[in-house]
Design a protein around this nucleic acid. Structure first.
Lengths: 133, 133
DNA sequence: ATTACTGTATTAATAATATAATACAGTATT
DNA sequence: AATACTGTATTATATTATTAATACAGTAAT
């Protein structure tokens, strides 16, 4: 099963998410498969059920899993339609290349992140706002 | 002069930073030029001087500007030595391409960000930890 | 030395985020 | 309907990040 590092600065729910994404992408969790229940996984990972619930919620929002109250959570049938899986693999490649280039150019992570976030915003223009004032 | 969006979820100091980086990269602020004083810029942008100070501090840490107590802040002489400027332009291009591809593939921003952060971490492996326990 | 500017440092208030405790609600089996 | 599982919602707490208030210190001109 997936593993998490409680001493990492990466939020637990993200670690859980990433782990599951990987298992789904790699086919270890096939379409239709039942995911471990929120409580079970939480117990196994020694974290709070809500933390797992959040990870599951994000995965559902992304269409990777579906959830049925009282029944459980299941890997989406179309999660293996490949577009998703291939997409992630391709994205991985794209960014790996860009980041490697950036590093070679002498850029540090925060600098790279800044450039990335800038581009992301300009490409997707118009997103979340806060502070209604 | 640069503009900021106080309703954005992006921190003010980052917006200031990004704006100045752009002006420097594009040559609107040439090497040796005097930047607006911290207080002046803060007043103009209707934000707290400390917020501008933080942005300036980050820029200095990155060698883009130099600061002389009591005198003011100046664009570094070597900020136009091109490595920095070209680097940013190249990075911009790299990520713009990757992000455009990702968008075309149907990925949403959070998904793209996730892939990016994953790759960033793996490329730069070994960084900050927290929670000494 | 006074004035009027510079940037800097300390500390406090606020907002955002991550995690947890706990109670709620649905489903299935008996 | 009772039990024992599911996921969900509400609320509280701790931590971190962001912004602000304020006092400090350097430079230069008068």
């Amino acid at each position: 099963m997936i593993k998490i590092d409680p001493t990492s600065f990466i939020p637990l729910y993200e670690q859980v998410q990433t782990g599951l994404r990987r298992e789904i992408a790699l086919g270890a969790l096939k379409p239709g498969a039942t995911l471990p229940s929120i409580r079970d996984l939480a117990t196994a990972l020694l974290i709070n059920p809500n933390t797992v619930a959040r990870a599951y919620g994000d995965l559902e929002r992304d269409g990777l899993i579906t959830t049925r109250k009282g029944r459980g959570c299941f890997v989406s049938e179309d999660s293996g339609t490949m577009p998703e899986r291939d997409k992630i693999k391709r994205l991985d490649g794209l960014f790996e290349a860009a980041i490697q280039d950036a590093r070679k150019a002498g850029a540090d992570p925060s600098e790279i992140r800044r450039v990335f976030e800038d581009r992301l915003r300009s490409v997707f223009a118009e997103h979340g706002k806060r502070r209604t004032s």
